[in-house]
Amino acid sequence: MTLRRLLTVVVALVLLVYPFVVNSFWLVQIGGRTLGFGTIVLSLVFLTAYTGMLSLAQMTVAGVAGYATAYFTAPTGGVGLELAWPVALILALGLATLAGLLIGLVAVRTRGIYTLMITLAVAMAFYYLTLQNYAVFNGFTGFNNVEPPVIAGLDLGAPLPFYYLSAVLAVLCYAGVRHVVRTPFGLALQGLRDEPQRLQALGYNVPLLRVLAFGLAGFVAGIGGILNLWLNASISPGSVALNPVIDVLMAGVLGGIGHPAGAYVGAFVFTIVDNFAIDFIARERFNTLIGLVFLAIVLFSPDGLTGLVRRAWARWAGTGRRRDDAPDDSTNIGK
């Protein structure tokens, strides 16, 4: 327990001090991206770890929030409706939550691999919709020059404020997820992950719980989506295409989809590989590299890097507490 507290303090210190030891590229492109993208991954990990549903539509929900924010704050090519930023952000998060709920409604009667397939179909349908539709999504071009608001003279788009904004939101989301899973609602979710029938027999409304979990994940993904939008300053169908949709899954699996911390670990590793793949492999072959890394993780350590570390730690530290009999989170997902 003390170790966990120590770890929390260390992470908090690193997050605070980080901007003062790195240059602006590392601050925004690595730090900011890890925190924003990681929050989208967090929504996937939350769903997977605590409800057993592996959704591939979390980038889509993030895209809904991103598109909504862009639509209401940065009209492009005559598409959009400029609103005050607080209204725009509330609308964006509301729509993301709604999108999460609707996807949950579509996927609610499915389990495991079917959830994966149906959420992927939803994600791809949304991608083709953004590509085909000009009235709302401005087609292939999407929205450009989306800037974060300036609040009381503080430009949230500047590197340092943007980093801290991302860090605060990421910490809030992480803490929120950790808190929710300890509430009666979160415990019920874990119950339905393990024994849906038993939970049903106890009088819980299992489909409703599942849909609500998707809604909450939609809200978290929406926050990540808005951060991601501001980081890129633009959004287009390419932001919700198959590749980014799979990227979220890959980051989650890399970090370990059994624990929320895995989300940010995975997002960090993914961002690092994304940015520096060029240096140790031929240009543009990033996908081959990350694909092979992903495959290796799936083959050899299904609970990801955090699982790897946890097991190494248990072996190194633990004669006292053997974890061999502990349930293996990742192999049971969706069963």
Binding site: T288, F294, L295, V298
Partner: peptide, 15 residues
Amino acid sequence: QDLRQALATIGVSIV
């Protein structure tokens, strides 16, 4: 392990 197989084939498809 159907989910793990699906993940593995996703990796294969990316590569």
